[in-house]
Design a binder for these strands. Sequence first.
DNA 1: ACCAGTTGTAGTACGCTGTACGAGGATCGT
DNA 2: ACGATCCTCGTACAGCGTACTACAACTGGT
Lengths: 221, 221
Amino acid sequence: MDVTPVGRPKKERDGKPVLTRESIVATAFRMADEHGVEPLSMRKLAAEMGVGAMSIYHYVADRDALMDALADEVAAEIDLERPAGPWTDAARHLAISTHEALIRHPWSIPLWTEAWPGPHRFAAMEALLDILANADLPHAVADLGFHALTNHIQGFARQRVAYGQNPTDTPEAQARIEAVLADPRYPHIAQHARYHHEHHGQVDEFTYVLDLILDGLARSS
Amino acid sequence: MDVTPVGRPKKERDGKPVLTRESIVATAFRMADEHGVEPLSMRKLAAEMGVGAMSIYHYVADRDALMDALADEVAAEIDLERPAGPWTDAARHLAISTHEALIRHPWSIPLWTEAWPGPHRFAAMEALLDILANADLPHAVADLGFHALTNHIQGFARQRVAYGQNPTDTPEAQARIEAVLADPRYPHIAQHARYHHEHHGQVDEFTYVLDLILDGLARSS
DNA sequence: ACCAGTTGTAGTACGCTGTACGAGGATCGT
DNA sequence: ACGATCCTCGTACAGCGTACTACAACTGGT
């Protein structure tokens, strides 16, 4: 039944090994895109690749290391190209690109806080710091701007995903939401939710607050 | 050996039951403060209370429900008192109080994104929305301000904790940091870290960016 | 051609997790 | 006294990450 009994690397027909660090990360990435990162176990990953569970550990130290790699794979999708024009345009472009990468792979958002950054994320951080360093801002302002922007990017992605992914399909969850909206103690929350429901997608909140921050920084120069 | 063999509620000497939903949450809260929330298992919690593991499930649906309760317990520490003065002062006070509660209990930060809010957190949300609703802001600006502030509060807490808690004590982690700081590809990151190291605690970055947001919102009225 | 050393794969097992199920003692209302 | 009810908890199961170990297959030296 089994073609490659045990021992040496399984190979494809053309001689490419089926098990490499790249192929492992790529498969895990695909599985994370499909079902999220929490139910992704080493056993399932190995099974998906048609391989024994422990074989993976030859290419990846442990599960955490795999998660680090996954997070950096998302960071690899950030467009580091710097558009011509003022520094605020460059910062806006980088911020939006990062935000979109996170939204594309929502499972990676918690990892960005927990994991040690990989080379791609370091590159993105360096790019943002470079933009700010060449913006003629006071040193303190540039430093604060870095944190404010990083925080805004990651936080808004987190918030956007959290609002959208709460499973509203189960009847009990629906009832829980209804209960809050009808609760007389929370009139503003109900109104806020109603407002969101009506104006859904009409305002890009991310870029609005982004410009709020960028304008504030620019004014501080 | 065992005083209360099995069956009925264990009681203290003065007749108070040892096992209530409140006592369970309180114990879990204390344990989370000590070692974080991740290694807090139902078994350990039960053992800490001198009780069988399954007894807890009579007061708490499952582990997730316990986590929801813990997150809301942190929200209970938010000071909802509204100081006199302009709305920006009220918003600042609420934001700082929330931020401080999160910093006091860093383990709860991820829960705030994942968990369904409890009554205390709803009350805090309502309070912030109330402040913004009475600020004479355009509706859209108030709505954006809510997200911007919420995001800033939670995100900065997350960032501050993440920067501080990375275990820098193990020699390998130290080496990893040194490697990045010495990497010629990341000159700005190294400079940024150096700047932080030198000016540590001299600038309150949280309130600085907070005022950036509040001023921006106030200008939009 | 042979053998030794290296490399990559995987079986087994350990300790841990959350929790479903059901047994059974303790207490209360009658 | 006697069911009904409430609470406690032992057992068990499925799943997890991964340490350890055995071993097949390839590689290079001779």
